[in-house]
Amino acid sequence: MNTHATHNSSDHHPHVMSVQMNLVIFAALMVLLVLTVVAAYTITGGWGILVAMVIATVKAALILAYFMHVRFGSKLQLLFAISAFFWLALMLGITLLDYISRGWLSIDGK
C-alpha cells in the first residue's frame, strides 16, 4: 500500500507468532494427517475423495493462515491467496462441466 498516504498495520511491526502457537498448528496438522489416512481406510464409495479433499483444504488453510501469516498480514495477501485458488476453481470447475455433461443430449458425438 501507499506508505505515505495510508498506514498499514502489517508494516514496521511484523507479527511474531509465539513458539506455542506454532506448535499448536503443527499438532493440528499432524492430527489431520492421521485423520485423512484413517478416513481413507474407513470411508468407502464416493464420499472418500470428498472427505480427503476437505481435510486437505483445512490443512492448507491452517498453513496459509498461520505458517504463512495470512491472518496477520495485510488484506492484500489474503486477496492474492484467495484469487489464486479461485482461478484454479474456475479452471477445474468449468473443464469438469464439459466432461460430466457429455452425452446429456442425445446428439451423436456430443
Binding site: 468449468i94 462441466l97 464439459d98 466432461y99 455433461s101 457429455r102 452425452g103 446429456w104 443430449l105 446428439i107 458425438g109 456430443k110
Partner: peptide, 10 residues
C-alpha cells in the same frame, strides 16, 4: 470439437 453441447451453450 468433442466438447459437450451444454458446455458449448454456457
Amino acid at each position: 470439437s468433442g466438447q459437450s453441447m451444454y458446455a458449448g451453450l454456457v
